[in-house]
Design a binder for these strands. Sequence first.
DNA 1: CTCCAGCGTTGAGTTTTTTAGAACACTATC
DNA 2: GATAGTGTTCTAAAAAACTCAACGCTGGAG
Lengths: 302, 302
Amino acid sequence: MKHLRLFEYIDAVVRAGSIRRASEALYITPSALDRRIQQIEEELGTQIFERHSKGMRLTAAGEIFLDYVRRHMADLERVRSEIEGLKGLRKGHVSLVASQALALKFLPEQIRLFRERHPGVSFTIRIADRGEALKALMAFEADLAVVVFPKMSSEVLQLIMVAQPVVALMSVHHPLATQPTVRLSECLNYPLVLPDASLGVRELLSPILVRRTHKAQISAETNSFELMRGLLQDHRSVGFQIAIGTPDITQESSIISRPIDERDVPTAPLICAQLRGRTLSVAAARFADQLTQHLDQMDITS
Amino acid sequence: MKHLRLFEYIDAVVRAGSIRRASEALYITPSALDRRIQQIEEELGTQIFERHSKGMRLTAAGEIFLDYVRRHMADLERVRSEIEGLKGLRKGHVSLVASQALALKFLPEQIRLFRERHPGVSFTIRIADRGEALKALMAFEADLAVVVFPKMSSEVLQLIMVAQPVVALMSVHHPLATQPTVRLSECLNYPLVLPDASLGVRELLSPILVRRTHKAQISAETNSFELMRGLLQDHRSVGFQIAIGTPDITQESSIISRPIDERDVPTAPLICAQLRGRTLSVAAARFADQLTQHLDQMDITS
DNA sequence: CTCCAGCGTTGAGTTTTTTAGAACACTATC
DNA sequence: GATAGTGTTCTAAAAAACTCAACGCTGGAG
């Protein structure tokens, strides 16, 4: 919208860190951008930015104002969405940030399901680690976050929480593949492919593995479950993931999952969250409904 | 602020009911105003107004958008106030809507007290009846409402409620003036000057007076306590008011108040309220603090 | 039934605002 | 001390907003 140009300018300068870089992103000249910022500062009667030789940094007043700017740009999206909602949710957009575990199966399924009923709704999905996810929420970059083992903050409102069991991943040709369930100690007989510290599952495994470190043979650590599944193709290694992120057996991936005995590893909390105090767009709210509903069912069956 | 011009235009058109009248209030031509509205409607992809031969009325989408517009204009005021708050509340503004009973003594005292500590803070005070007061809150025309016996709605948040006793008003030369307290039945021996239905006190008196209507002699009804006090100068009539709205004895007004026995008339609820979900400006929030504090003390002593 | 008063709207011309482009002043870093 | 980065200012040009005058429409009064 035209009249929010000034707001977008400020937001861009904060993101870029300097007028010149922001001006490139906005396709205008630095001089024009500079004038608009000076105009706002004059209207507010306060400096919004500290002029640093390496760029612009927000002042205290600027932090307050930026929060207003972002909140209201997001709120306008909600209003537009609500207006579209009057016509039956024909259009709309949902912006998600999610943990990697959900990228394989859960989110694609959920989005496909949602778009069957609401074909006009589009999505942007950013896969991020636990730290980034909630930051994106607070910077109004995402409507919803679906995260494994998040570091919660008081600014984030948890919509639902389900307990996800940790499972062991391995090739179908792996010796343990014949068992219906496995014990953690059995896994330790094989080379381990571990998720790294940026992933929630690792948070659960670390304290346990530390105690048995003399037995464990860690062959690889990675922040990519995709890579992990590739490494497991050696038919010997064992990986870990939460149940919801498990690949389908029907796929030709030849990777299967086996539940780990409950006594060995605690369950991982999987949450869906939004920014507290923010009103979601119609599309985002409906999608959150669908998510919580499916997650809830899943929790009962497990 | 400059870039909120479009928002102010919309707000003005809604208030005026037509482009031409709004254009007068805004000191621009109707054609300019019309073009901006069409621009917004194009950007939103929806009609905001129904074109009627007598003017413009909001559509459903318009209602949603207007709420956004007003909320955000009010929120910008809060942001400005918060930024000023960083410098110690040197500037600021509080917009009040209040019942008439508070116009005589309570509000002037409270505002004087507040401005002693914060000389840079200015006030606008609108005296209104109970219906208008809460409407003003919901239209973002006032930050705070201080109202006697309001019709509460779920959209307003009650900050404090104190019980106010009803008192009888009369001239110092009135026969009843010698008594420390009076019974309602004693008042009925004299001509009554009643507040009318727009005032909260009447709400309390009506059901009681109906039962004794054969005895009561109503000489006047008015929506002005100032007029009521004038009428009481005949040394015979008796009026009613809540304790907080009572004139000081030290004034030359020669009107005094006498508590009515508690058994005769219930107390009147006096509340201070804001719009639910709205963040008040620093100045308004501090003033609300002061009000609740003083009202609370007052409640204990009575 | 006509006429009038009010409404929203449009086209052409003017004013104000915003942007572009080049140059300047400053500051860290190598 | 050169250099690459920053914010800023000057001018002119482009874009947006506004004015003025006029048109077409509707509902009610004479």
